[in-house]
């Protein structure tokens, strides 16, 4: 069969009318996540784009209960809700903590670390648009090296690499960690469904293109996401039990330049700087491959 065919649940829980920007990756991600988890789901949203996208009180586009909580408390609020549901005997309801990169990498890190260490039975999805987009594109610790934001202007672009949140979560020895992309909805949905079936803490990191913040064209969102995967900037993989690494989509190894060129936030980069990003992506991939090998070695023993 030549053409990719999607196997996607028909159910649409998220409705039209939300206030995400045109071409928003986060809104696509929520749509897929709810398709995967179904109606028996509760969503916890801290301060982030989705706190707005969902609609003002008393409206909500998500066809499931949504609990808006404080910025740093997504993981602990989800923990509490899950405990309450359990107490009521409604353990079949999945609790989804849905936070941006700010609420995960920076402000909510302590709460997610705590929940992960206790191995709480929640699904934590970080939709990562690589800056504080909702408040006006300020840098976060998820902003990649060299990127423009309003607080890292072109004269002083970001000098530190993106924090490796997946490794941080893996250091907590939780049962399931995965990366996902809105360009591969079937892969994303499969990972969400798998997460739903696993007891304990699950963490899924979704790259979520942001046309205004990335200074990209709205229609390019999926294309850019796909290039992120194939340039090894954002490889898709999953880690079971903390050591079994599996690559989900084999990258076509396109140059990072192809990924960067669609985004105005990288427009100022020089050839040398692009080369550095290329080397970082290659290195990241090589390390990932070593981890895959190591996982296979453990499995044999």
């Amino acid at each position: 069969m030549s053409q990719m065919k999607f196997e996607i649940p028909e159910i649409e829980l998220m409705k039209s009318g939300h206030v995400a920007c045109p071409g928003c990756g986060a809104s696509m991600a929520m749509r897929y996540a709810l398709k995967a988890l179904g109606p028996k789901t509760m969503v916890v949203i801290p301060a982030c784009c989705w706190a707005i996208i969902d609609g003002p009180n008393p409206c909500s586009v998500n066809g499931v209960p949504v609990f808006h909580c404080a910025f740093e408390t997504a993981a602990i609020t989800a923990t509490g809700i899950k405990a309450g549901l359990k107490r009521q005997g409604k353990d079949d309801i999945s609790v989804l903590a849905w936070a941006g990169d700010g609420g995960t990498f920076d402000i909510g890190l302590q709460a997610i670390s705590g929940a992960a260490e206790r191995n709480e039975d929640i699904i934590y999805v970080c939709y990562d648009n690589e800056a504080y987009m909702n408040t006006g594109i300020q840098r976060s610790s998820a902003t990649p090296w060299g990127a423009w934001t309003t607080t890292t202007p072109v004269k002083n672009p970001k000098e530190r690499p993106k924090k490796d949140i997946v490794d941080i979560l893996l250091a907590h020895h939780i049962p399931y960690v995965a990366t996902a992309s809105v360009a591969y909805p079937d892969d994303f949905i499969r990972k969400m469904q798998k997460a739903k079936s696993i007891r304990g803490m699950k963490f899924i990191h979704v790259l979520s293109p942001c046309p205004p913040g990335w200074k990209s064209q709205a229609e390019e969102s999926v294309h850019i996401s796909r290039l992120a995967v194939h340039s090894n900037v954002f490889p898709l993989y999953e880690v079971d039990d903390g050591y079994r690494y599996t690559i989900s989509i084999q990258p076509k190894k396109v140059p990072v330049r192809d990924y960067l060129k669609y985004q105005g936030r990288f427009k100022h980069l020089s050839e040398e700087q692009i080369e550095l990003i290329q080397q970082a992506a290659d290195r990241k991939w090589d390390i990932l491959m070593k981890k895959v090998e190591m996982g296979e070695l453990f499995m044999q023993n």
């Binding site: 009318g17 939300h18 609609g55 586009v61």
Partner: peptide, 18 residues
């Protein structure tokens, strides 16, 4: 609603006007 709770979806927000 007795507390801040959504009672409807966003179908009145016709985003087609954007």
């Amino acid at each position: 609603p007795v507390f801040a709770m959504s009672v409807t979806d966003m179908h009145k927000n016709k985003t087609g006007s954007w």
